[in-house]
């Protein structure tokens, strides 16, 4: 245990496995989250994100592996543990007849007896309503809220007990772009101001980039990448694409170091080079390559076992490189 509170591990998952019948949904997932981090589980539909979240939230019993959330196995988390965890699920329709502020004030009641000198609980409902931008709707019935307002209320409900750890499962699914952007602003603001540890899932890469300090890419029940946005880009991003015209001919080259390559071009040909374009490899390219390769392996049934076997740990990256080369 380290002295530095910022380094405290609040979520520790080791070799998490989940089976439904004969289908293995999680095939040994291992990751940690430290206090104050905003971590995104990113992956395509069916990658196992929601299953992972439900296990972490204590809503589902795992098949194997070790899980500690705030120092407790969520499968046996009691009310005192529950009071320290906030949950925002994919879509809520509950309490449609309640009024916004009334619901927050009511749900806050449950947390009062878990207040400590360090963590006063719950949040004041008026402050919370204002924090999620629902002051104008404070006395509206929940079912009259728009999709975006409803999600903001859900976040408020998730926060009402002042959780140390907040789970957001696909928080922007079904929102229009405007509502989505507003929601990103809200979460970023909360993370900045209140410093809870946040674990969220999404299948939207841009959302992950927007919100997270760190991205854990989940594909087909395994973690295929784990790191900060910059780190991921640096470590696994493939090659930039350089296009130029020389002596009337169009050239395309893929390279890891596009700046040096372009410098080399000008050294060799001087101003005979024109129409230079450099397209940096985006995280999206990486991500698509990562999960694309995975699902290719997945559909190719006979070789699936072999690919999966070689794709453990760092081998995954080489797989991506090969995939890129073959293209």
């Amino acid at each position: 245990m380290t002295r530095n509170a910022e380094d405290r591990v609040v979520l520790d998952v080791e070799d998490l496995r989940m089976r439904y019948g004969t289908t293995e949904v999680l095939k040994g997932v291992t990751f940690q989250v430290r206090q104050g981090e905003v971590v995104c589980l990113l992956g395509p539909n069916g990658a196992g994100k929601t299953t992972t979240m439900e296990i972490l939230e204590g809503f589902r019993t795992r098949s194997g592996g070790r899980v500690q959330v705030l120092g407790t196995d969520p499968a046996h988390g009691g009310d005192a543990w529950r009071a320290r965890v906030g949950v925002v699920l994919q879509s809520w329709r509950d309490h449609g007849r309640w009024r916004v502020r009334e619901l927050l004030a009511h749900l806050g009641m449950y947390y009062g007896c878990y207040a400590t000198a360090r963590v006063p609980r719950p949040w004041d409902p008026d402050r919370l309503v204002a924090a999620v931008g629902l002051t104008a709707q404070a006395h509206a019935k929940v079912r009259t809220l728009s999709g975006g307002q409803r999600r903001r209320l859900d976040v408020a409900v998730g926060l009402v007990g002042r959780p140390e750890l907040l789970f957001l499962d696909e928080p922007t699914a079904g929102l229009d772009p405007v509502a989505r952007r507003a929601f990103h602003g809200l979460v970023a603001g909360l993370a900045e101001e209140w410093r809870p540890t946040i674990v969220l899932t999404t299948h939207d890469l841009h959302e992950a980039q927007q919100l997270a300090d760190r991205i854990v890419v989940l594909s087909d029940g395994r973690i295929v990448a784990d790191g900060s946005v910059a780190h991921l880009a640096e470590r696994i991003v493939g090659e930039d694409e350089v296009r130029w015209t020389h002596e009337g001919r169009r050239h395309v080259r893929r390279t890891r170091d596009s700046t040096r390559f372009a410098f080399g071009l000008f050294q060799r040909y001087g101003d005979a080079v024109s129409d230079l374009e450099v397209r940096k490899a985006t995280l999206e390219d990486t991500y698509l390559a990562l999960v694309g390769q995975r699902s290719a392996a997945h559909t190719g049934r006979p070789v699936a076992g072999a690919v999966a076997a070689t794709a453990e740990e760092g081998a995954a990256e080489e797989g991506v490189a090969e995939e890129g080369a073959r293209r």
Binding site: F59, A83, W92, R93, H95, L107, Y110, V157, G161
Partner: peptide, 20 residues
């Protein structure tokens, strides 16, 4: 009905929620 619309799940996510 409460199970269908998620009220029960919300209760479950709240400490002491199911009893209350």
């Amino acid at each position: 009905a409460d199970r269908e619309d998620g009220t029960l799940l919300r209760a479950k996510a709240t400490p002491g929620g199911t009893q209350a």
